[in-house]
Amino acid sequence: MQPERPPVLQIQNLTKHFLGVTALQDVSFELYEGELLSLIGPNGSGKTTLFNCVTGFLKIDGGRVLFKGEDISNLRPDKIALKGIRRTFQDVRTFPEMTVLENMLAAVQQHQEENLIARMLGTSRIHHLEHTATERARELLDMVGLDNVRHLEARHLSYGQRKLLEFATVLMPDPDVIMLDEPAAGVSGEMVTHMMNHILNLNRQGKTILLVEHNMRLVMDISQRIVVLDYGRKIADGLPRDVRMDEKVREAYFGH
């Protein structure tokens, strides 16, 4: 945590209720540029709810979210994505009937400023954009080891491969903030290491990453800072080793 870096994402007093049940209560923290911050907590602590609130999939009941100083609370999900925040989903989402490559290209569908008419006419500028996008897609696919299956429909991939594909798609538009919702959940041990290495490398290249994980051990070594949620409240925020020692965190996780 270097103070001279500006915060990219500021979450201020975020509150969310579901039919009278409080899912998030006054949660505040900042994500600084180039930081790898992990959001952890037991199941049902509100991590995914927070993700959905920040990315516009759920309406916020109180507080606000600032992105580069701009209030993005309750904006439409697609608008938030275009501003430069990209996310993955816990229950892997890919477009099943598209090929791996098409999945990648769909991620930058709206990225370039272009209008509908230009796209219908298929101007040469579009062809150029499409060409650059394809090159970038193949680089990223190569990185995660999926380039050889790029013409395969996503539904034919294994679960782990789909997780990697989803991970690669969020990188396509080179977003300012990457939000990963349990990228290692449900994949085999070897794949977990693989995935964590990718995330670490990405961060070393200067990417800002917000990671949700309920397995605390996984993120201890790679995170620069950890925020802990329990029953929708923030109970800790600090360096991994401090958080590990925190009394409240131990109680939330181990019940003593």
């Binding site: 999939f57 990209r86 769909a106 709206q110 006419l121």
Partner: peptide, 28 residues
């Protein structure tokens, strides 16, 4: 023109997974 262009890909994205399409900046 609608289905064979990039618009067609957005169509397919919306059909196959609206939530994911939104997360990619496509307004369903």
């Amino acid at each position: 023109r609608l289905t064979q262009s990039r618009i067609g890909r957005a169509f397919a994205a919306v059909r196959q997974d609206e939530v994911r399409a939104s997360a990619m900046g496509i307004y369903p």
